[in-house]
Amino acid sequence: MAVLTDEMKKVLKVVGKGGAVVHLTTSSADGKPNIVAERFVTHYKDEYILIADMFAQKTKVNLNENPLGCISIAHPVKDHTWVFRGPCTIISHASPDHYRWHDIVAGEVLNDWGDWATKEPPDEVPPDIAPPKLAQRGVIVLKVEEVYTFDPEHSGQVIS
């Protein structure tokens, strides 16, 4: 198990300047990788990262058959060359409130982050790249078990 540092939490929750952007990598059970940029991201407790689930169809298929993911920092990247890897799942709006996944309770996490666009409206996103309508279907949760650097000179070295 790895614990997110204060610096990691700060980068995963950048407010203003376009906010934080990460890439979420998943894979089918037979090794077909998939990578997508995600704009709605935050840390949760000390070892979880949350992403809004918005039309993440291939991600959903992959996580159903292979519940593992990597989250890599895309922006702001300077001195923040981290990849977070660990078990990953989707807590959908259809989940019962009492459903638990590791230390995550569905009712609690959806109450906090189930309506991301209202909680943190993406006002800064330019109109040509903003989705016309934000339809959130749940929350993608990654439990951080390992953090490694993607700095090319030290790539793959485990940080925690």
Partner: peptide
């Protein structure tokens, strides 16, 4: 993004 044949993901 890459993965092993059993689907263990890695990113560079």
């Amino acid at each position: 993004a890459l993965a092993t044949k059993k689907g263990f993901p890695t990113v560079i």
